[in-house]
Design a binder for these strands. Structure first.
Lengths: 245, 245
DNA sequence: GCCGATTTGTCCGTATGTATC
DNA sequence: CGATACATACGGACAAATCGG
């Protein structure tokens, strides 16, 4: 059984525990984890709850259930880069996990009203009030990521340059109590702009990797569109796709 | 209730039906779909089965369930590009869906034995027998994608240049009856190589977008690693991430 | 502010189907 | 063929969030 109390939900606690046991090497690559029946005993939960945990584990690319045989581990520690973007993770969270020295500078901070071009760009409606923020992410001393954020004012009231310098997500989830839910992202490669040249330490790179993400909160409101422009050599995007899900 | 017989499973049929109804505009952006109770009536299924269908719908970024209120549609038809890569979709399937004139040429076809460098590159074990295939994807007359595939011979026996010119997935899923299950992908941006220059119509681009994918079949066997090198202006990668899954 | 109706979220127990060995 | 293991489906129960009276 799991130690103390569960924080989120039973199935999620079981998922986290199994994930940790896989990452720790207790269940190595190409081995089978214990059967459903055994795990139901161990975690003292219902068969349905365990299956939900296994489904999350699968969606994260840790295991591959095989009908009639067992649940196979397909997680290789070496293969996984540490900068996980296939999940929703903020810059602050990501750098903390990677133990990198990193900081953010704010290039501009303004409040605007959506016009037609901005609407086409961001997906917001004409007339929406937005915060437009430009930030530069430095890692180990070099300017590597140039972020242009558009936040819906009504959803993220009281945003300040001070806050965006720290972590918007911490403010949004902590102070405002808002929950981020779905993020739709597109990855492209574009020519560098004059702004890229000014903002980033580009060396001789002529193109940048761009991640365009539209983020929805738990109320289904599209509250953020971000253009994240990365120097190519420091850009990696991970993703796990599962058939039938 | 759904028309005739279900092909795969009840929950998947319901997912496909709801997805179609959303894409058709019956449930527009920012509207609520009928409640669980109503849909359970309509589809004559159990409440659990319907919830599973909704979970798949959510993972595909169509809806956002909101506790106590309903299930909100967050799908915008315009926003979605048609070249979906966040799902597992083959080149043949993708071009067919996009109604593009496309064809494939085979640059090389060989059988090799994995040595240390190839092992490090592909994730296969030293000594594994592999097919190494180089192909170029042409769309509307231009060479845009340069694919280098490594297939595990034991998992994909009898592969021929003729087959890879058509669709490997059709052979694998159709003839061999194998089912593709999980795909782990990484997107990077790299400098063009001499091979890129020879294989692709690169214009003056100096970099390519690279998708590295490791694909597992339903038996949990890592049977394919592919390096897909795209001309930047024709490259787009879509992804939907959901918190808590 | 409270209460009740509605709606989604989680969990449980059970039954049946299907693939593997 | 039987035992094991995963896959799907059902029905019931309760919790939590929302909304209106």
């Amino acid at each position: 059984m799991l130690k103390g109390w569960h924080m989120k939900s039973i199935y999620y606690d079981i998922f986290e525990d199994l994930r940790d046991r896989i990452e720790s090497g207790e269940f190595p690559y190409q081995s089978y984890i214990p059967s459903e029946a055994v795990l139901v005993e161990e975690y003292e939960c219902s068969h349905n709850t365990l299956r939900k945990a296994l489904s999350v584990l699968r969606l994260h690319g840790y295991v591959q259930p095989i009908h009639g045989k067992g649940v196979l581990v397909i997680y290789k520690p070496d293969t996984y880069a540490r900068f996980v973007l296939g999940d929703i993770e903020s810059f602050a969270e990501a750098t903390a996990r990677n133990k990198l020295s990193a900081y953010t500078t704010v290039r501009s901070f303004a409040q605007i009203v959506t016009d037609a071009p901005v609407a086409a760009l961001t997906g917001f409606a004409v007339g929406d009030h937005l915060y437009r923020v430009e930030r530069v992410r430095h890692m180990n001393g070099a300017a590597l990521i140039y972020d242009i954020n558009y936040f819906l004012v009504s959803a993220v009231p009281g945003l300040t340059p001070k806050i965006v310098e720290d972590s918007v997500y911490r403010y949004v989830e902590g102070t405002l109590g808002m929950q981020i839910s779905t993020s739709k992202r597109t990855v492209k490669v574009e020519h560098v702009t004059h702004d890229d040249r000014r903002a980033l330490d580009l060396l001789d790179y002529s193109m940048v990797a761009v991640v365009i993400s539209q983020t929805f909160n738990s109320e289904g409101i599209h509250f953020e569109t971000t253009f994240s422009r990365h120097r190519p050599d420091f850009f990696t995007f991970h993703d796990t796709a599962v058939r039938g899900y």
